[in-house]
Design a protein around this nucleic acid. Structure first.
Lengths: 158, 158
DNA sequence: CCTTGAAGCTCTAGTTGCTAGAGCAATTAA
DNA sequence: TTAATTGCTCTAGCAACTAGAGCTTCAAGG
């Protein structure tokens, strides 16, 4: 039996996150000590490891929820799990393609910038107009024109 | 002079987003008609294009704020703009590296899955244990162990 | 046995970059 | 003139956590 702190140490998932997973129903409610503190068994540990590894591989919590319910019924067909993994692969591939063209543009931008003052800075110039770009780094067009990898930079470059 | 709808059509930025940019101070408050509707001039159009293009290249709104204030003072040194772009490039490169190793794992996972039922499904098995992985797709260790590209999947695979 | 410091508890609110909806006012085309 | 469209403000919601306040419980040392 592990306290939440031990579980955190054993999995690398922070305690508030563990409680959050419990809150949204990804982890079952564990038994409590008489003092109301959570205690976890080996099964919970494994479940949390599964979640963490899936998150590392980029699966959304919703996808993980599905994968977990699949792995809870080991007699079912594996097709559904396979489909989720394939969808994730497609998603990763498209993000990859977009990022590569971003990289191209950024490199060009940085390389060309030889000016001294902003007025002849290529960085600003390129940002002002997509016509300066060689690749079409823009998202194709779906409902979220700017989404898909660009929106989650954690204070990328400020 | 353009209405907000025309500005939207001209830039591809949706009207709520335009108003949002105004709200957070990325766009100045435009003049209004007597009926309180916003009207934009050419300068606003260019500023919004700049923002959109920077977003497409993955810059955060904070970084864009800095870039805009740089481009508003064209006599300054270009070094700051250059630094922001370089930081963004570094960020993109690291995301790229991570995504490539994710792709490797996902491909292996999907390819190996030949089982019929969950009980011998490689997908579930691989997710259960990082030891099955050939690359270390895990984020090195910084403050956000699971952040950096994985957290923004728009309903990736559910 | 008592104390002290770490760890745990609940709860609320904040993060990024928007998006959705309600409920209304203004504009424009027929 | 009337109907359709567009615009307005405001609040709330999304993912996936993170941070903080203010309290309680636990474990180890003296």
């Amino acid at each position: 039996m592990l306290s939440i702190g031990k579980l955190c140490a054993a999995t690398g998932v922070k305690t508030p996150t563990i409680r959050y997973y419990e809150q949204i129903g990804l982890l079952p409610q564990p038994p409590r000590s008489r003092g109301n503190q959570r205690f976890y068994d080996r099964k919970a540990l494994e479940r949390l490891r599964f979640i963490r590894h899936s998150r590392e591989l980029g699966f959304s919590l919703e996808a993980i929820r599905d994968l977990l319910s699949l792995s809870d019924n080991p007699d079912q067909s594996c097709a559904a799990a396979d489909a989720i993994a394939k969808a994730q692969l497609v998603e990763v591939e498209s993000r990859l393609a977009r990022l590569m063209s971003l990289k191209t543009e950024l490199e060009r931008m940085v390389l060309q910038c030889a000016g001294d003052t902003i007025s002849d800075c290529r960085v600003i110039e390129v940002l002002s107009d997509h016509a300066h770009c060689v690749t079409d780094h823009r998202t194709s067009d779906d409902a979220h024109p700017l989404a898909g990898g660009a929106q989650s930079l954690p204070a990328a470059a400020s």
